[in-house]
Design a protein around this nucleic acid. Structure first.
Lengths: 333, 333
DNA sequence: AAACGAAATGTTAGCGATAAAGATCAGGGA
DNA sequence: TCCCTGATCTTTATCGCTAACATTTCGTTT
């Protein structure tokens, strides 16, 4: 900057201002500065800027996994909004592990993000302490925690699953099965299972639970789990899967065996993945509005960080109600 | 740090050292420092560290899209290796647009990453200039550019597609169709199309091209495109899709119409997505080893940045040969 | 006991930007 | 003419850490 200042004949401060949109620099001077800077191959150094101004423009987010999951959509929604506001997303993968999450949160906080977004409402005590004392907005997503750390953008996984079970009952199912991964770490999966069990018991439906593979369970595990379900003694009217990917795997296993869906077995998924719409038959699913969770979170943060909204004023809980999408896998057409 | 130093009775420098693994601090002193720091709720400030040490620990990567694409796997492979080496990935989405890429590269370089990974080998002139003069290792992935900026980890999309066409011919196909998105921006898609055309002409096969939707084209577009192909006058023996997702869409459209795959029409995809393996019939696909591209890139960068490998010594081009995976969608079983 | 080298710790200065406050200047009104 | 106002630009002093070099400590060796 000093070199540019010398070349243009102004002070470094003016060069600094020229690189930021808002501040007062003469239009002629700014043009000249930017042009000379480009010629000299100068690239602005955010590192120094961040230190002095105590603003990094980072928003950190921890997610369990990017692959085969709705979280990619959430990140996309978040990123679109934040990028437009000049904020950079810092991503960390917890791999469905709360200890890994704690480590990650600590790492990310060292970068001095201006806000922190986490997936789910279960964290280690130390992670909660770190988040609380960071002095920045914290958003928990994809869940409605009992005692939230800060803001919340999400929905109740258990309630959503209850609604799904009610749908299956009204479609005529009496004997259900739930296909999910090991609960270890996947609290959202565990909540869905809990909602499933509660609803099944309340409605006096028979049910069984099948768990295999560590999350995120994918198409392959869904197919393998369906083998167990179909081979078991007790027959089943409907299987509910923790995600559409598992549901699709289950569907293909039925097709492989010539088991008709939905006439012999209904199949329901979760997440409104593309596959739910394109599969034959279409998969009944619960649309959690993954991308909306991200964009809503982004809008909240932009309002707090750049819009001048008071931390105390902003609504603490943003409920995003999932939408049940009924399709051919649970209803004959 | 000064506060901690005072509390422990050492100099700030010693505290600074205690927070970095390698440097020489007495084991007793280090333990004490870390404990007091934790009690005081101190969180290390990377921002200042980065400025002074001129090392940020960032590796920036630009990818076209995270959703419905193999790039998520590449990012995962890259992240796993880099995270283990203490490096943080900075992600940017170009949305299949070279101008957006240029803007993004400039933004990311301001953060002073220690290396830069980009997808593909086509960039604006200014982007190339920025990358070249950044003075950091640059890796182009998912392509083998004619005139690379720095390092390369990838394969020839055109060659891969040629091999696919050869496979289809040997499987008995004479009349082909290619389904892809608009070329605008998706150079890898365009390269695949080019390879398809070249191979078809060389082998004297009839062919047609169907393009619709902006990349990344997904299952829905694949199904829509298949409508066009099946409705057209001239019959087709095999369709090649720019990705497995489109191929799966095409497959469902065939099933919806009762067109037998592969007996009436063969279908081939690209990318070895999970769906290719689970679909019925399985989709013949080209496994580009998406994740390996990421991890190989990560290993290269760790060697360069932390392993002391000389920039000049390292191999410039890392070829990752795609693997043809033949399945039921092109070969009767 | 003196000399020595390695390990542990301290001192000084500065990374490259910007917050905050002050200086300069053109144009307009009294 | 003089004062005032707002726009534009400058000066000074850090932000929180660490490179580079200086110094102390302490176990060994002669």
């Amino acid at each position: 900057m000093a070199d540019i200042a010398k070349a243009v004949g102004v002070s470094p401060m003016t060069v600094s201002r020229a690189f930021r949109r808002d501040t007062s620099v003469g239009e002629v001077t700014r043009k000249k500065i930017l042009q000379i800077a480009e010629e000299m191959g100068y690239v602005f150094d955010s590192t120094a800027s961040n230190l002095r101004s105590q603003r990094t423009g980072f928003v950190a987010i921890t997610i369990p996994s990017l692959n085969n999951s709705n979280f990619a959509d959430t990140v996309r929604g978040l990123n679109e909004v934040l990028q437009a506001a000049g904020l950079q997303v810092l991503l960390g993968y917890t791999n469905y592990d709360v200890d890994e999450e704690e480590r990650l949160i600590e790492q990310l906080l060292r970068r001095r993000p201006e806000a922190m977004v986490v997936t789910g409402g279960r964290h280690t005590d130390r992670a909660r302490r770190l988040l609380k004392s960071a002095g920045i907005p914290v958003v928990e997503t994809w869940d409605i925690p009992k005692s939230p750390v800060g803001y919340t953008v999400g929905f109740s996984n258990a309630d959503a699953m209850r609604r799904m079970v009610e749908h299956l009952q009204s479609a005529g199912a009496q004997r259900l099965a739930f296909i999910g991964g090991d609960d270890k770490g996947d609290t959202r999966g565990a909540d869905r299972r809990r909602g499933f069990v509660e609803a099944a018991e309340r409605l006096r439906l028979e049910y069984q639970l099948v768990s295999l593979g560590s999350p995120p369970i994918s198409m392959r595990e869904g197919a393998r789990a369906m083998v167990d379900v179909l081979d078991a003694r007790q027959p089943v009217d409907a299987v509910v899967c923790v995600s559409d990917l598992a549901a699709f795997g289950a569907l293909t296993e039925c097709q492989r065996r010539g088991v008709s869906v939905p006439d012999e077995v209904m199949i329901a998924g979760f997440g409104a993945y593309d596959i739910a719409e394109v599969a034959l038959p279409g998969l009944t699913t619960m649309d959690a509005h993954s991308m909306a969770i991200g964009s809503r979170t982004g809008e909240l943060l932009v309002a707090l960080l750049r819009g001048g909204t008071d931390f105390a004023t902003a609504k603490k809980v943003s409920h995003i109600e999932p939408t049940l999408r009924i399709s051919g896998s649970t209803v004959s057409r």
